[in-house]
Design a protein around this nucleic acid. Structure first.
Lengths: 198, 198
DNA sequence: ACAGCCATGTAACTTGTTACATGATTTT
DNA sequence: AAAATCATGTAACAAGTTACATGGCTGT
């Protein structure tokens, strides 16, 4: 939900051709994650389908310029004016995973958390390194890059602190507390044994 | 990428029928976000297609029980053993949005940030309220719920702190610094005017 | 009888993402 | 000439999500 809108916002600055859009997007997001080129053309076609963009003629060099429409500009304005809302439908993969894992009787939740912490800390350190390395220059691309890096850093920090919290809370509870019975209403005559390779 | 795996993990505890799976998922994730029932059946069919799950006979009450396969169990084990990795392809919608917005010349980035902060703070306070309300009981479902709530809280806190940071950094830079030229290589004879309603 | 939940399913659609084909231009 | 990059596009798929149809069962 952000590639589509970002490309549209870039087009709102003036027509671009596909390959150019890719570079613009990469630069403006600090090149921390680069787009697969193919996605540009897909997205453009979908934007065209939705009437937010119009395909222009190719210039003498064969570059196909795309223009934003009025609807497209309105959409950009709406996008910029409205906040990103992280409502109840925005599921965080890790949180869901740990919540589910904590309720699976036969599971070593502590091990799951340890594995995650290794990864999260590695990520955190890698980010700190990268953040430090890229501190110097002051160009606008550097700035975009550092914004995105900071975002990842803050998120990684929050994640590790949350992991600590979860571990702490889980250690205070008896392991059996998480053995949720599967039955909202289960057939009395035990579960059928797991069957494989019929 | 977490609904699919979560359902599979629940099925690893024993066969379930679809509607039951929905309730299990909702309970185990603290009912902070509930699944559309239809998604259960879609996901089950996709899991079946991938050989991770097998459709059993319906019982006398018409409940269609699903069983996990050996491949499915392996997949669950792999899921639990491997961390959630937030690599470069994991784009954060808000970070991308602000990075892009900051590089759009005609844009009032400060306004975008303000709008976002209103939302983020509202979210933060709502979470704190909800978190406080649900503090009491100590059952396992409560615990799952509080884990997810904490995760959202930590993330919301990090987000607001990051917003402060971004605002601070942007205010230190002259607004013109963000007027990135669109041209990696632009046709010399200016941009075609935006055309609408051909 | 009627409302409402239980339960299964289908069809469509969204955004994101990748793999591949194809040719032009540029660089070495 | 070969290799790399520029540039456009196509085809397919993944995962999530919703809307809708359909019927059974339950409580009032």
């Amino acid at each position: 939900m952000s590639v589509r809108q970002s490309l549209l916002a870039i087009l709102d600055q003036g027509p671009c051709y596909g390959y150019q859009l890719k570079h613009e997007y990469d630069r403006r997001t600090g090149a921390t994650s680069t787009l697969n080129v193919g996605q540009i053309y897909n997205t453009l076609e979908r934007l065209e389908r939705d009437g937010l963009v119009r395909r222009g003629e190719a210039d003498e060099r064969g570059h196909v310029y795309w223009q934003i429409t009025e609807d497209g500009s309105l959409e950009v304005a709406r996008w910029l004016a409205s906040p990103v809302v992280r409502n109840s439908t925005t599921r965080d993969e890790l949180a869901v995973k740990l919540a589910v894992a904590a309720t699976l009787p036969g599971t070593d939740v502590a091990a799951v958390i340890r594995a995650q912490r290794v990864e999260s800390l590695a990520q955190l350190h890698a980010l700190q390194q990268a953040r430090y390395r890229g501190e110097s220059a002051g160009g606008p691309e550097e700035l975009a890059w550092s914004l995105v890096m900071d975002s990842m850093l803050f998120a990684a920090e929050a994640e590790t602190r949350w992991l600590d919290r979860v571990e702490e809370r889980l250690s205070q509870h008896p392991a059996t507390a998480f053995s949720l019975a599967l039955t909202t209403e289960r057939p009395k005559r035990g579960r059928p044994a797991r069957v494989d390779a019929a």
